[in-house]
Amino acid sequence: MLSPHEFATLMLVKDAPDQLGLDRADLDMLLEHQLVALEALPCGQQRHQITRDGVSMLKAVTRFG
Rank of each mutant, 00 (worst) to 15 (best):
G44W: 08
T62K: 14
G65N: 12
A25Y: 03
M29S: 09
G65M: 10
G65H: 12
A16N: 07
D26G: 04
S3L: 12
D15Y: 03
G54F: 04
L38F: 11
L58Q: 06
L41F: 09
H33G: 01
A37V: 13
V13Q: 01
E39T: 15
A40W: 11
L38A: 14
K14L: 08
T9A: 09
I50F: 06
P4Y: 07
T51P: 11
D53V: 01
A40S: 15
Q49W: 13
R47S: 08
Q34V: 05
D53Q: 11
F7Q: 06
H5N: 14
E32N: 11
T9Y: 00
E6T: 05
G54P: 05
L30W: 03
T9L: 01
Q46F: 14
D15N: 08
D28G: 00
M1S: 15
H33Y: 09
I50C: 11
H48A: 11
R52C: 10
E39M: 15
D15S: 03
A60E: 15
D53W: 09
S3W: 01
V61I: 14
L38V: 13
P42E: 12
L35A: 04
K59C: 10
L38G: 12
T62D: 11
R24F: 08
L20R: 10
L20T: 06
C43D: 15
E6S: 05
